[in-house]
Design a protein around this nucleic acid. Structure first.
Length: 878
DNA sequence: ACCTAGGAAGATCGT
DNA sequence: CTTCCTAGGT
């Protein structure tokens, strides 16, 4: 996959496009008078055609940002200004990278493999790091640790230091270390004041020993990918030079989300090669700067803008001040013109109003200071929105004006006014879900496609309610960016096996699976291995191999461990002769891992086995095990069948960059959105970020934006009354319509809920009086506590009108009852193939038995998930 | 070594 | 209401 040699073979003096290559094709595409340029508005065109010097494109939501980026690449190629491999193009998410590849492919006709340096900051950094791993004390097959591994490792360190991990949780330390890494700070660079806040001054030391451990484990965490490549560049100017001369053009997407480390990384790469290299590389490179780059490198890597000599920590530990620290050295000596020619052709695209990753270390400051950081930069604003109707855009624009400290853009559209943004109050979160469910069904009847409908939530725990509701309704949905595929336990276990095969020093992986499935190797055994390993400074696996030869273990454990060691050795040998997918199957099989789940009768066991199959399927795309493991933690995200009609359910964060005709925005309540925690921790800056998030949410909508809030929401399991979000008051009334909830009572309406709501329960008919229902109620003692197993809460909670069959009850005479009527009528028309007491299996809820049948709607008591109402096509006979 | 019950603590956002 | 962790029983 990656060719380690590729980089060192560079630089190639030849700028002629390779015949038949991507560039040639781009040229061909351009032959008709640059056809790809037509259809761009003047600003977009300017952004595409301004190739020299730094460019900042301020692109508001829906103004054609991605189009500009991809067209710009096409333009560079077709002008013959660079070859595909000389363009560095970074995005934040894999999704965005993929999107760009697809769009480019459309524009140029496949051949995007020719763009090797299009990817996320992390994947590109990782790739660079692997080529020079030994220079940062790693081996090229190093493991990328995810958050879970990170925490476990830190826990071990805390234990070793005898620090009470109750008082000083590993999570907190992980957060601190992440923060430091985001700011480009190595252990020695952390301001002592900050290093002291954890565990009575041990924070800095722990960070240092964590980094040491990582090297021993041949591992890097996410932050390291950037931090270590920065170090690589600084400590090895020749390596830096290679990349500097390689990349003729740099493009950055979502620049507003870059953190300090990413800024530094970009900054290093965007310099023209330093003099030492200039003689070698600059000559055949007429593209970069005029007359070669003879300027003194005001940026001797390491000094110039290093946050190493940052503001005294006691002045103000806020990131902003640390961030501004480098500026004096950067700005001083004002040889602006020199700096101008020293900088490469870097084009950053972003929108300060969509900066929503402050918590991850993003510095809006980066974009606000662009002109300062890249002197002579040209700033281009894209303000014409091609996405949303007038009212939606007006609402979003007006809302965001409440933020101070923005660069200021005025979005406008030539689209029709369209429908007003609706704001709907629901009594509680269940009603909210019900209301949205019904609105979606209504949209469906109007002929809308479910693919054009999205629900965007602030926090992922809001999703559950919708999922439950949609399962009940039989409404297809897909969760986007939910729990990451590779974060699932079974995937991580499987990967751990493969990791141990690939890299015997991977102690974390070994520890994870040494007793999974159960092999009788418990804490005591593992402890013994640890002692051995530490004493002799060898990996756990080696320790195991050695210990098996002694009689330190009880015979049973010893035999079991020996078996495991032998198995691994066999697998490693097989690796040479067996295709990696096959090997994976063998490993999962022989280790007993598959069997473990096959025997498991719990609800999700079947799903887990499916996931394992999917994992193996996904391995096919890679040449070998090594290549697969390299990419897995960075690139892997399951991409469900996207062509099926389904409502999309996701967080606001993961919605960035997407658009839908119909967007539902539930949960606009104080405390949830804006999130209390953000407010507490970041004050006004936090509030502004939340507001930007709201802005992002609204601008995802093309034709309909529907905001909801609930008056009561369950927080930590207890019902709490909430107040509507302040953001609602910040919407322009002319573009907003207050509507009544279709899911029941509505909040503002005359009196809302009366006691009469309950009166209606009886009259609602069959469902509550049927024997099945009563039996169900009788056999559910949990109901007395508030329905711990789902459903049946209406008994003691006057708030929740949970209706078994997905309709609405209550006294809303119009709409809802009709809908219910339809549903009931439909359901009684069909006869289900199921009967009470049938044993069934459900993809999501697992095994259970049928309590009641009503047409195609079943009431099922699931073994694990409690009682649910589902459409019969969702279950199968067990 | 394994399992279970029970308590305590805790919950954005994601490469 | 969850998940995580510990303690105690087998």
């Amino acid at each position: 996959m990656t060719e380690p040699n590729r980089v060192s073979r560079f630089p190639a003096p030849d700028h002629q496009p390779v015949a038949g290559g991507i560039a040639a094709r781009a040229r061909a595409a351009a032959s008709g008078g640059a056809r790809y340029l037509s259809g761009l508005n003047p600003e977009q065109r300017d952004a595409v055609e301004t190739l020299d010097g730094p460019v900042l494109v301020l692109a508001g939501a829906g103004t054609g940002k991605t189009r500009v980026l991809t067209t710009r690449i096409a333009h560079i190629l077709s002008m013959g200004r660079a070859r595909p491999s000389e363009i560095l193009s970074v995005t934040f998410t894999n999704k965005a990278a993929r999107e760009m590849k697809t769009r480019l492919a459309e524009m140029l006709g496949q051949a995007v493999e020719g763009m090797p340096w299009l990817g996320t900051f992390h994947s590109i950094s990782g790739r660079i790091l692997r080529s020079h791993a030994e220079l940062v004390q790693l081996k090229s097959n190093f493991t990328v640790l995810d958050t879970d591994d990170q925490i476990r490792l830190l826990k071990q360190l805390l234990q070793a230091e005898n620090i009470d991990d109750k008082r000083w949780p590993a999570r907190m330390l992980a957060g601190l270390i992440d923060g430091w890494k985001n700011r480009g700070l190595a252990p020695s660079q952390v301001p002592s004041g900050e290093a002291a806040v954890f565990a009575n001054g041990k924070g800095g030391k722990l960070y240092a020993s964590y980094q040491e451990r990582l090297k021993i484990l041949n591992a890097a965490d996410f932050g390291d990918l950037l931090l270590e490549s920065i170090r690589l560049f600084r400590e090895n100017p020749d390596v830096l030079r290679q990349y500097q001369s390689r990349f003729k053009f740099i493009l950055v997407d979502e620049y507003q989300d870059t953190n300090v480390a990413q800024y530094l990384w970009l900054r290093l790469l965007s310099q023209a090669p330093t003099p030492a290299a200039a003689t070698a590389a600059a000559a055949p490179s007429p593209l970069v700067g005029e007359g070669g780059s003879v300027e003194r490198s005001e940026t001797e890597p390491g000094e110039g803008f290093s946050p190493l000599a940052p503001a005294p920590a006691d002045r103000d530990p806020s990131p902003a001040s640390l961030r501004s620290a480098p500026s004096p050295s950067r700005g001083e000596g004002n040889d602006v013109s020199a700096a101008k020619t020293a900088l490469k052709n870097i084009c950053c695209v972003g929108d300060d109003d969509q900066s929503i990753y402050g918590w991850r270390g993003a510095e809006v400051d980066n974009i606000l200071r662009f002109e300062h950081d890249f002197p002579g930069a040209k700033v281009i604003r894209l303000e014409r929105n091609y996405r949303s109707t007038g009212h939606i855009l007006a609402a979003a624009s007006h809302l965001i004006t409440h933020n101070e400290g923005r660069l200021g853009k005025t979005l406008h559209t030539e689209d029709v006014e369209g429908e007003k943004v609706t704001v709907t109050g629901a009594w509680d979160s269940e009603e909210e879900a019900r209301g949205i469910g019904e609105e979606i069904e209504e949209l469906q009847r109007k002929g809308e496609h479910l693919n054009d409908v999205a629900i965007l939530v602030r926090a992922s725990y809001q999703m559950r309610e919708f999922e439950d509701r949609f399962v009940t309704l039989g409404l297809p949905y897909r969760v986007i960016g939910g729990p990451r595929f590779y974060e699932r336990a079974e995937i991580r276990d499987a990967l751990a096996y493969l990791r141990v095969i690939n890299s015997p020093a991977d102690d974390l992986a070994f520890e994870r699976i040494v007793n999974v499935p159960k092999r009788g190797l418990g804490d005591a055994t593992v402890q013994l291995l640890h002692d051995h390993a530490r004493k002799r400074r060898i990996p756990l696996f080696e320790a195991a191999r050695a210990v098996v030869e002694t009689d330190e273990l009880k015979p049973k454990a010893r035999g079991s461990l020996r078996g495991l060691v032998l198995q691994f050795e066999r697998w490693r040998a097989q690796r040479e002769v067996t295709p990696h997918t096959e090997l994976a199957e063998i490993v999962l099989d022989e280790s007993g891992y598959t069997e473990m789940w096959q025997k498991d009768r719990s609800a999700d066991a079947a799903g887990r086995l499916d996931n394992l199959k999917e994992l193996i399927r996904s391995m096919e795309e890679f040449e070998n095990l090594h290549g697969f493991l390299e990419h897995i933690s960075l690139v892997m995200d399951r991409e469900g069948a996207a062509d099926e009609e389904a409502v999309s359910l996701m967080t606001l964060h993961s919605a960035k960059g997407l658009e839908f005709d119909n967007v539902f925005l539930p949960g606009w309540e104080e405390g949830l959105f804006p999130s209390q925690r953000t407010l507490d921790e970041q004050g006004r800056a936090g509030l502004e970020e939340e507001r930007r998030l709201a802005h992002v949410g609204l601008t995802r909508a093309r034709r309909r934006a529907k905001i909801y809030f609930a008056t009561n929401r369950r927080i930590h399991g207890t019902w709490t009354t909430t107040i509507p979000s302040r953001f609602l008051d910040e919407l322009p009334s002319a573009s907003v319509e207050i509507t009544e909830s279709k899911g029941g009572s509505g909040w503002g309406g005359a009196g809302g809920y009366g006691p009469s709501r309950f009166d209606n329960v009886e009259s609602f008919g069959s469902s509550y009086s049927t024997p099945g229902w009563q039996r169900a109620q009788a056999r559910r003692p949990g109901a007395a506590r508030g329905g711990s197993e789902g459903g049946f809460k209406e008994e003691q909670s006057p708030f929740s009108g949970h209706d078994p069959f997905g309709g609405t009850f209550g006294r809303n005479k119009r709409g809802p009852m009709t809908i219910e009527g339809e549903l009931v009528a439909k359901s009684t028309g069909t006869t289900s193939e199921f009967a009470p007491d049938d044993r069934v299996f459900h993809q999501k809820f697992g095994y259970g038995h049928v309590i009641k049948v009503d047409g195609n709607k079943l009431t099922i008591a699931f073994d694990k998930a409690g009682e649910k109402h589902v459409v019969d096509s969702f279950v199968q006979r067990a």
